[in-house]
Write a protein that binds this DNA or RNA. Structure first.
Lengths: 170, 170
DNA sequence: TGTTGATTGACAGTATACTGACGATCTAGG
DNA sequence: CCTAGATCGTCAGTATACTGTCAATCAACA
């Protein structure tokens, strides 16, 4: 018996792999977002950061990264770009010289109001090819899976407890 | 009636947005892949490229990008790195001086055989938190959605027809 | 044959991601 | 007060992604 050259290694296994499908879907999602929002010069990441700062005015960069589960190093340049566009401003914290607090500017609040319809349209478009019941099912399963895998990511989501040190009492 | 300051804009809408969940899940997937395969010094993208070259020896970079639906510009540096690691080699095509054909080296074929179990373990881990029936349901819906949104991505997948010019007859 | 248009690989520029390290700063303990 | 450890922002280095451009080359056609 000749020793066979191992199991069939083909590209078809890649096509069916969860990781490959997640990557493709993410790229499709970004593509649709950018197309719907091309009038606004905002990336998905920048949009999420703006929303988070709007929800939590005076948050610092480290806690912001926990609230949206984005890498803290990357967030530095994202904040820089948002600041360069005059959508946010940074103020030193009075009681901690290490921290810089983040606030939306008037421009930032305005662009947020304007872009929301386009963003919602983009989000709807991503799921549009599916039947309504399937959309619900997919989102339900995906929400579960992301939540259950939270600790597996480098930056786990810490939605509420990340804000306990922000002077709201804990 | 005072005109209300628009709908409630909060971070919770982001948490439930398909695009946000796709992004998070992709990052979790990469994290799990890298952890399971840390002994091999191969990224998910490099792995997919290797598999594709193994399946289609003598493919060129442009067709490779269509076969795995990766950006062609990015693929250039991916190929460079795989070549630097001595996993692939590039040979000029005799009948077309523009094209460089891609082949796996012995090292490349070997690392592929060795890494497969780790990759499969990683893929399984991504879905592990879900019940088996839910895993199947999620993968089914995601496969559908990626396929139906194929043209929405910058680099649509062209699995088979991309290879018609490779001398296999068309 | 000579020109036009398409294709290929390469590159520049921008934006995420992640790893690891670093100085400045704050906190706790002694 | 002074030091050890933790935290914050920052940076360097690597790897994807995408846009747009370019020279070399090829294919098609007049």
């Amino acid at each position: 018996m000749p020793s066979k050259p191992a199991a069939p290694i083909t590209i078809d296994a890649v096509y069916a792999a969860p990781g490959y499908l997640f990557r493709r879907m993410q790229q499709i999602a970004v593509s649709i977002f950018m197309e719907e929002c091309k009038a606004f010069d905002l990336t998905p990441v920048q949009y999420a950061a703006l929303i988070a700062i709007h929800t939590h005015p005076g948050i610092d960069a480290t806690r912001l990264s926990a609230v949206i589960a984005f890498d803290r190093s990357t967030l530095g340049s994202v904040i820089e770009r948002l600041q360069a566009k005059d959508y946010i401003e940074r103020k030193p914290a009075p009681e901690d010289k290490r921290i810089k607090l983040l606030y939306l500017t008037k421009s930032g609040a305005a662009i947020l109001r304007e872009i929301i319809p386009a963003v919602e349209h983009a989000q709807a478009r991503m799921l549009e090819p599916l039947k309504p019941a399937d959309r619900k099912a997919l989102m339900g399963l995906l929400t579960q899976l992301v939540d259950l895998n939270n600790e597996a990511s480098r930056v786990p989501l810490r939605a509420e407890d990340a804000l306990e040190h922000l002077g709201k009492g804990g």
